[in-house]
């Protein structure tokens, strides 16, 4: 079975900083893959390249076997990739419902409609998505007035609007209270299972990662240092070193 996403030898430099350095990994359909690593490891950079926001210096990105390296993000979106951002991005001047409608209209390639009011388009589908993400009660509120956790959920609903095969979620729980975090990932897990959707996400809370991910890959200073099941990664020495610092790693080893 072809991988949903296959990343080969991605490299990206910012001046002297190596944000990514020969990173390769792949995601199978339906897989929930966690990308972890300390701050500045290159996670967001990786997302931005896969998503088409950035061009890599070298390396390739394949989606469903097709080389998409360097394509703009709107094209990648149409190939079935949904995305949420580290700092949630929604359309602040629209209601939650309109946000999802806009995403649906965009996904259908119907933005060049000049007559029918957009609010009458894809209403039911939008409501359904809001329901799935637990946002139905906020449908008529302006996005700018939502609590941050709700914005994150709304963003998820929008990312799902294109009926994607792959979801890229950069820190989906950043800025949420601890209790909310587990809930959010559980929701993602549930949605992916029901839709047969692959997810690549980053997350700082190890409990959340180890509790939900199918597989974990670890970035440090732009290099991929581990790739395996939750248990493999949990016990990986280099991972412990990166996360706990030299002494802790030595103790753990000893």
């Amino acid at each position: 079975m072809t991988a949903i996403l296959e990343v080969r030898e991605l490299t990206k430099h910012y001046g002297g900083v190596r944000a990514l350095d020969g990173v390769s990994f792949s995601i199978a359909p339906g897989e929930l893959l966690a990308l972890i690593g300390p701050n500045g490891a290159g996670k967001s950079t990786c997302f931005n390249i896969v998503n088409g926001q950035l061009r890599p210096d070298s390396g390739t990105v394949r989606i469903l076997g097709r080389d998409v390296t360097g394509l703009p993000s709107r094209r990648i979106a149409h190939l079935g990739v949904g995305r949420t951002f580290q700092v949630a991005a929604v359309f602040g001047s629209m209601t939650a419902l309109e946000n999802v409608q806009a995403a649906l209209i965009a996904a259908r390639g119907a933005v060049f409609g000049f007559w029918r009011p957009a609010t009458t388009i894809a209403r039911d589908e939008a409501m359904a998505l809001l329901e799935q993400t637990g946002m139905a009660g906020e449908a008529e509120r302006p996005a700018a007035a939502l609590a941050y956790g709700d914005v994150k959920r709304l963003e998820l609903a929008m990312a799902l609007a294109g009926d994607p095969k792959l979801l890229l979620m950069d820190e989906p729980t950043a800025g949420m209270a601890a209790a909310e975090r587990g809930e959010m990932i559980a929701l993602v897990q549930k949605l992916t299972r029901s839709r047969g959707l692959a997810v690549l996400f980053t997350e700082h809370s190890m409990d959340v990662v180890f509790g939900h991910a199918d597989r974990v890959i670890v970035l440090a200073r732009g290099r991929l240092i581990a790739d395996g099941t939750v248990d493999e990664v949990r016990t990986d020495l280099r991972v412990r070193e990166v996360y706990l610092g030299g002494t802790a790693a030595a103790e753990a080893a000893g």
Binding site: N51, Q53, P72, S73, R74, R75, A77, H78, G82, R83, F85, A89, V90, F91, A102, A103, A106, A107, G109, V111, E155, M158, A159, A161, G162
Partner: peptide, 8 residues
């Protein structure tokens, strides 16, 4: 950002 990521 969001608009592009949604395919607009």
């Amino acid at each position: 950002l969001r608009a592009e990521a949604s395919g607009i």
